[in-house]
Simulated scan of single mutants.
Amino acid sequence: MGSERGAGEAEGGSPRWSSFVALGDSFTEGLADADGDGFRGWADRLAEHIAAGNPELRYANLAVRGKLIRQIVTDQVPQAIELRPSLVALTAGGNDIIRPGSDPDLVAELFDDAVGRLRRTGAEVLIGTGFDTRGTPVLRHVRGKVGTYNAHLRSIADKHGAHVMDLWSMTVLQDPRAWCGDRLHLSSEGHRRVALRACDALGMPTAEDWNEPWPDPPEHSWSELRAEDIRWAREHLAPWISRRLRGISSGDGREPKRPCLEKVTADH
């Protein structure tokens, strides 16, 4: 996907993209990366990195929490095509994969179709693999399905010439501090590191390192850790299971936070 000037760069060293649209679910909406009355997230942070080299960048974020891949493909992809951006970030399928009985092969078919449609507009596409869920209490049982889906995603990227943001290999995200209190969404620091990883995937140099080691963690007693587990199960796990059983999505009735292409500032 890169040119002789290097992926993601135009002459003079500035990013070549004039417009950027992010598609997906809560991960791309930026849940848990609090920003005033809303959320920031890795995609907003990536837009800021691009805007640092191209102040004329226009950016839209169509991601909505809780969305399944068919909803993203049906609703968000046509909107993105209508906006005709030069760069699209598509991360989708995670909410499908964690559902009992879901088939990663079928989810990948929908993803493949979406990437193909976006690429036919002339846009460059950045996709993200699934995280390695071995350290996540709720999701470790779907690790095999995530691995299967990731294999499909890499094949799709090769087929269509897309950039790949490899989240599975980000072992730095195995640290609990990369996640917020619900243990399902990234913390602000986790989002910051993913944005840097995205820059790396796009060939954009940054002054920061996404793989920078964490400082030594604070020490906690066994009783403190167990009390935290009990609180998490009560405040986050039980409501999450309840919503799944009732077929309720956290994104029901929500609109995208940034539906139109608008300029962004280089410094948030």
Rank of each mutant, 00 (worst) to 15 (best):
R117A: 11
K159I: 10
G135M: 06
K257W: 04
D103F: 00
S221M: 08
I156A: 12
E235S: 02
W222L: 01
E235I: 02
E4A: 15
R193A: 05
F27K: 02
F39S: 11
G116T: 10
A7D: 09
R234S: 09
E235L: 00
T28I: 03
G66C: 06
I230V: 13
G94C: 06
P85W: 11
P259Y: 13
H191T: 05
H141A: 09
R70P: 02
W240S: 10
P218F: 03
R58Y: 05
L46P: 07
T129Q: 14
T206P: 09
R99T: 11
L184Y: 00
G130N: 11
L167P: 02
P15R: 12
V88S: 03
G12V: 13
P55E: 14
H268V: 15
A266R: 09
A47C: 05
R143Q: 13
D105T: 05
G253Q: 08
L237K: 02
R117Y: 09
P218A: 12
M165Q: 15
R193D: 03
D96V: 01
G130T: 06
T206G: 11
P213D: 12
G41N: 06
R119V: 15
W214T: 11
R226E: 13
A233N: 12
R40F: 07
L126Y: 02
H220I: 10
R231S: 01
S102C: 08
M1I: 15
R226W: 13
R197P: 10
R243G: 01
T121L: 11
G2C: 14
L153R: 12
P104H: 10
V264E: 03
R258H: 15
I97R: 03
I98Q: 06
R197C: 13
G122L: 15
W17L: 06
R99N: 12
G13W: 11
A238C: 12
Y59T: 08
F131Y: 14
R134H: 07
L106G: 09
D200N: 12
A198Q: 07
L106R: 14
C180T: 00
N61P: 09
L173W: 14
E4F: 13
G6P: 07
S18F: 01
I97L: 10
Y59W: 14
G101K: 14
E29W: 05
L110M: 11
G251A: 08
R197N: 14
L196G: 09
P218L: 11
H163V: 05
G8P: 13
V142N: 02
F111P: 05
D252A: 15
T129C: 12
D96M: 02
D182G: 00
A108G: 10
L31D: 01
M165D: 15
L68F: 08
R99I: 04
T171S: 13
D75H: 00
E189Y: 02
W210D: 04
D96N: 07
D132M: 08
Y149T: 00
G181F: 01
P100Y: 00
V264W: 07
P104M: 13
P85C: 08
N211T: 05
V107W: 01
I97T: 00
V115Y: 14
T206I: 07
F131R: 03
G101M: 15
E11S: 10
A43I: 01
R154Y: 07
V264P: 04
R65G: 04
T148N: 03
S14R: 14
W168C: 03
M204H: 13
I69Y: 05
W168S: 09
A195M: 08
P104Y: 09
R154D: 08
Q71W: 03
I241Q: 09
I97F: 04
